[in-house]
Amino acid sequence: MIWSKHSISSPSRTDARLAGWLSIAAGLAAAVLVLIVLFLLHESWPVLNRIGWLRFLTDAAWHPSEGLFGLAPMLWATLASSTGALVLAGGLGVASALFCRFYAPPSAARPYRRMVTLLAGIPSVVFGLWGLTVLVPLIARWQPPGASLLAGILILTLMILPTVALTADAALAAVPKAYLHGAAALGMSRSGTILRVVLPAARSGIIAGLLLAAGRALGETMAVLMVAGNVVQTPHSLFDPVRTLTANIALEMDYATGEHRAGLFVSGLVLSGMIILLAVAALRFGGARSHV
């Protein structure tokens, strides 16, 4: 890092050659993203070129073989499940972080944090398996058929909760101790300190975590696919089976050809657009990184 300003002597030839090779590798790494965008556009071009963007929103239904490409019901399903999960996980996650920092006795805080880390490491297909064999039958006993928007929301909540809890925990840890001492000196109660001092101070970090979690929820495929029922319809109640955009890609990619396949790539494009916007917003907001 220090050398990079300028070296007094001329750089050795091996160094120059190494720098050349490294630049090629870095160029390749950066090219992966360009390649992805190019291929998504290339594959979706046949149908985009013929019918344009708007028909994907205005068509009455999703019947690609009959030339109907309405993504709207699945877009609603994606938004509904992600919003529901974000509300639940937001509340529970921030409460979990508060629990670790302010409420739990030290002997409980450490194992609790470890548990949340473990929860973060459970793969989505395992959440799906559990949801399918435990949660769905449970909901079905109450409101058949069970595989529903509600099941999707609950599973997604469990999945994104660690993201919210861990980023909120880090944000709470970064609140200057002086603020806490000040609040204590003013005789503020614990709830007052949390609501008036700590949460406002940690706000941007918490919001960045929520944005990251929203991105994960929108992009999640397997868990939702396994529990949400996969009927293409606009959800009208929590107990309607729904199919999200991601699930639609995973379910139909196997046999899709021609314009049908192109339509699936369009939904991939739409999805990536939404999530990349969220990720960039999260970076701008709190410097939270989605990959660490």
Partner: peptide, 12 residues
């Protein structure tokens, strides 16, 4: 480009 790549969902 890496930050954006990290945000791309796995199905994509």
């Amino acid at each position: 480009s890496l930050d954006v790549l990290a945000g791309v969902p796995s199905i994509v």
